[in-house]
Write a protein that binds this DNA or RNA. Structure first.
Lengths: 225, 225, 225, 225
DNA sequence: GATGAATGAGCTTTCATTCAT
DNA sequence: AATGAATGAAAGCTCATTCAT
């Protein structure tokens, strides 16, 4: 991989860099999400962040750079939060279910940012797009590992794990992308429950089904008895 | 519905309007898809269409208008092509399967335009977005009707038809949105086949399963024996 | 003088030229007066006149030409109407008074066009402006002749006839230019009456005063007994 | 009054705003006066002012705004200079005469700008026009007060003060509007002298006449012995 | 003679980026 | 490090004028 993943800053103090970037990206995420990348000016981001325009160029090379890091930020939230949900869980199917639920909840907490990631990736130069795609693939891989292990363990019947994971992920993203259609018919718990019913339950073996039953009873999957 | 669906032209001859708009939209679709809406200038669209800049403004009110009609064009292709695939078919499950296959193939033939529709709807003013959403919902409804009828006829087991249709549609769209990941692992037929296996087959009753078997043998669903 | 006063037409039939030009100028006067020269498009003039854009260019060389003839039209109305008011009148002071009254009434009937003449002359090329100025001077000369003859005849005391005529003319024009301030305080008759009191009466000799008295009684000057 | 009189600037430092606006308006007044508002481009104003195009938009909202402030500037010059001429003068007729002379001299020093104000007010939106008119009325009021006080004091015979003031003001403006006709026949002092003779002297009482005689001798009114 | 679609130069306005302070 | 005024290229859009029909 090239250095497309790196963003240079003119400022040397690493702590300050961290802090300022967070401040700028927070503002950028808000505005990009609301108005889109092209309708948002750097001046507006600076104002929202409470700093001067010029300062942004001390921490980012150009406007594309701000978008790039904004998107990376969203993807990193996924990569950070999902493993947390799996921590200490050994059963691969339980991991899968927990990861799926966690994913849905992260999307719900980053609704606008998730939409932004979908709409704006293509606004980046090709090498930057590749970095984003790689990150996305990495997140998918987390789920795929759980699913593959579940199949291996006989909890899930043979299935195209790759595409099923795509469907699971799509289902999570749809909560953000189609909010206008979904949020007036379901609340988040119902939505998650339905996702499990449509995209996981049909593929479970008997053993798998009993694991899911347990998770329902434990309240891991909402909407169970 | 408001008049947000109408686009005025200064030119009176309806035949000419039809022709010129098609010419301009073809160029716009190509460029918007490739470079995005904001990176594409009206000058570039005019050049691609082989006409002068000013002429575009005789057929469209402004640049947003060009985008709007470009997107409507894509959605109309869906609304036009899918019913064709159902023509003369009476079995509701067969209709569903054929509609799904047709949808995938339309997406494949409009790859870039489909991506454009996903990315750029949010660039429109709110009332225009609503028109787009309504069109999208109408297309989904075509599928949902088939699925509901299949359930009624005992071909499909009870399931949340609304969300399952969303998943089917998403699966079709993903072929365009995630081309970078999918096209190097599957060809279109394999992809369709997998979609049927993941999103239709698990929900079939015995009778439904036999219908699907027939459709596989007839080659309606690719990848059957 | 150059040929700045001439406007060429591509059409040969003189009667048709006359007719079409009148049609176009009527539309132009209306729109130029309402919206100003630069805010009025040739397309709009054509539409208002009920003809095609191209046709205007068969009767006028360019847009400036349309303005020029529009202004000439207004000035010609002055040159045509004022002499009419003097017809058959021999007393020079009576001529002056009648001319002044007539001028005010013409301005009142051409309110918008008069404003246009004031605002837009400067939009013309220099040689065209000279033609307009010459016409304006010619109209003033009509009044100046009356005033000079009145002085000669001992009806008016010695005064700078040139500047007094300017004031008389200005007074007439002000009715159009300052309509917003004047029309809510005076009606046209009061206004004319006041003009006579301020700009004519103070300069009359005894004999002159008796002439004016007669004109008041005869109702030539409004607001008299 | 609405906020139509306000013009926003993006720049915060008030001193700089003052300075830059003056710089821009100076250039704009020059060019608008010479070529008219519509024939003058913002690019040209920027070049004349020695700055970049973009900078103009940091100090004015749009081109109309530049025109508006240009016109306000002219009117403010009147409102500022005329009272100066009256400072320390108690006799109301002397005030009137001095104000009239001052007005003529201001017009002479702002020849082109005065013409601009006449031609271009109508190019503004209605609410802006109202602001201009109100300013103009305010200036007239200065003169009207003097004239009314003179009448009260028995220096001037009964007369329609409102319309006589209009004539006085028109006389001043005519020096700019009809320069082409007037400047080759009179110099400014002669013109002022004639104005006094035509528009003030005829209306004076005996006492008033002696005041004017004094002002002539003192050289306040030019052209006296 | 008449039409009106087509042209394209030229305008206003925006905004990413720079740089003197 | 931080500011924010200044830049100027580039974009959308208009409209006087032309010309094939």
């Amino acid at each position: 991989m090239s250095d497309a993943g790196q963003v240079e800053s003119l400022v040397t103090d690493p702590k300050l860099v961290e802090e300022r970037r967070a401040q700028i990206l927070k503002a950028a995420t808000k505005l990009f999400s609301k108005q889109g990348f092209y309708r948002t000016t750097i001046q507006a981001v600076a104002k929202e962040a409470g700093i001067s325009t010029g300062l942004i160029y001390q921490y980012f090379h150009d406007k594309d750079d701000v978008l790039f890091l904004t998107l990376i930020n969203v993807l990193e939230a996924y990569e950070r939060e999902i493993p947390k949900a799996l921590d200490g869980i050994s059963d691969p199917l339980e991991q899968l279910v927990r990861a799926f639920c966690a994913y849905c909840r992260i999307v719900d907490s980053l609704l606008d940012a998730t939409v932004l990631a979908y709409r704006s990736t293509k606004s980046l130069p090709a090498d930057r797009q590749d970095v984003i795609k790689a990150r996305e693939t990495a997140t998918n891989q987390l789920l795929e590992n759980c699913l593959a292990a579940s199949a291996q363990a006989g909890l899930v019947r043979p299935v195209n794990t790759h595409l099923l994971v795509y469907q699971l992920v799509n289902f999570c993203h749809a909560w953000a992308l189609k909010q206008w259609a979904l949020r007036r018919r379901y609340d988040l718990d119902e939505y998650i429950n339905q996702g499990v019913q449509i995209l996981i339950e049909p593929f479970l073996s008997k053993t798998g089904a009993s694991v899911l039953e347990r998770l329902r009873n434990e309240g891991v999957v909402p909407g169970g008895r």
